[in-house]
Amino acid sequence: MFRNQYDTDITTYSPQGRLHQVEYAMEAVKQGSASVGVRSKTHVVLATLKRFASELSGDQKKLFAIDDHVVIAISGLTADARVLSRYMRTETQHHKFMYDEPMPVGRLVLQVADKCQISTQRASKRPFGVGLLVAGVDENGPHLYQTCPSGNYFEYLAMAIGARSQSAKTYLERTYTTLAEAGVEELIQSAVTALRETVASSKDTELTTKNTAIAIVGTDGSGMRVLENAAVQPYIDALDAASPASDDEEEDGDGDNAAAAPAAAAPDAAAGEAAPAADAPAEGPADMQT
């Protein structure tokens, strides 16, 4: 299993200047079920796929409300996400207390990313094994951010993370330009459609009212709301009405491994961290990850 001698320590660079431990933490994100985010000029929508630890258990949380104007979707280690979401809640509250105004989303994400970076540079802590999609609104309008275990963060018009998110990304890359002017309903529908791409090739999973959760934040001052259970039904019905996604999805055939590895690693390639090669872990619900 060990690839080389440079991959067991956070504080060790490989001769190529890579940080394998950080790259492995990035892999943990891909173990979690998918989260999708899309943004128009007025709203941001997150759509998430919830996993169940067993038939008898409840679902694991995918959406965390941070403040009236910010909500996050997570992929990766849920326990790590809870730490980050608590931090984010504290920070937004502190900002509100200090300035009597809601915290700008970008400033919040920056702080989270800086927090993530710290544990990539010290041996005493492992990096966070979770990626976030942060949806929020502020004076500059709606925002969708992604944060990574590496401490990188990006602002996106549309993005997907987690298991088989590449399929969703492929869908979004085809359609994201039309989303800027989209209405709320249209935006929700495209988020759900993108999410469906991540289960389209799976024989035993499909989007249901039980496993789909949606969050919406808008600039109209209505704050943040979450759709679950019956409220999700119309969007799932609309999916069935449209043609099944697997028809036009060529790269879905062999699960996520081939498709997900290059693209999901891409964000860090930008930071000089080259993409990890194969060993993308096998698909399957791990109890720790959602």
């Binding site: 200090m98 300035y99 009597d100 105004e101 700008p104 970008g106 400033r107 502020d138 004076e139 500059n140």
Partner: peptide
């Protein structure tokens, strides 16, 4: 980032 403190925020601060 194009943001600054409003007079209201300065007062609160």
């Amino acid at each position: 980032d194009g943001l600054t403190l409003s007079p209201k925020a300065i007062h609160s601060f």
